[in-house]
C-alpha cells in the first residue's frame, strides 16, 4: 500500500501548492479539492492490511483475520461528504465574490490584506 501513501502525500502537497500560488479563486478551490482527495487516500492507506479483502461478511469471508480495518473506511466516508459540502459552499462564495467585483482574481480583494 506504499504507493497509495506516496500518491496521497503527492496530492496533499500539490493541492497546498495550488492553494498558495494560484490567483484564480476557482483554481484555489480546485487545489483544496485535490488536497482533500490526498488526505482521503492517506487515511485509507493506513487502514489497509496486506492480502485482505473488504469488510463485507458472507460465506467466503467469515472471520476477522480476512478483512481490513472498517474504521478508516467509515471515517473517509464521512470526510468525503463533508468535503463535498465545504466545496459547494466555497463555490457559492466564489459566485458571490464574482457578483460583487466582477472578477475572480484573488488580488482584487484587498480588504483582508496586511
Amino acid at each position: 500500500m506504499l504507493i497509495i501513501t506516496v500518491l496521497g502525500i503527492i496530492l496533499v502537497v500539490l493541492g497546498l501548492w495550488g492553494m498558495l500560488t494560484q490567483k484564480n479563486i476557482i483554481k484555489i478551490i480546485i487545489g483544496f479539492s485535490i488536497m482533500d482527495t490526498g488526505t482521503h487516500l492517506l487515511i485509507v492507506s493506513i487502514g489497509y492490511i496486506k492480502d485482505r479483502t473488504a469488510p463485507i461478511m458472507d460465506k467466503a469471508v467469515g472471520n476477522a483475520s480476512q478483512v481490513i480495518d472498517p474504521v478508516p473506511s467509515a471515517l473517509v466516508l464521512t470526510a468525503i461528504v463533508i468535503g463535498l459540502a465545504v466545496t459547494a459552499l466555497m463555490l457559492t462564495y466564489a459566485i458571490k465574490l464574482f457578483e460583487i467585483r466582477k472578477s475572480l482574481d484573488i488580488n482584487d480583494f484587498k480588504e483582508l490584506k496586511w
Binding site: M1, L2, T5, V6, I9, V12, V13, L42, I46, G47, Y48, I49, K50, P55, M57, N63, A64, S65, V67, D69, P70, V71
Partner: peptide, 25 residues
C-alpha cells in the same frame, strides 16, 4: 508527512476496536 511512508509499519492485524467491531458486528 514523510514518516507516514518510512516509519509507519503496515498493520499486521486489526486494532482492538476494529477487532471488536468485526467479531461482534
Amino acid at each position: 508527512l514523510l514518516p507516514l511512508m518510512t516509519e509507519v509499519k503496515p498493520f499486521e492485524d486489526l486494532s482492538l476496536v476494529s477487532q471488536k467491531y468485526v467479531n461482534a458486528g
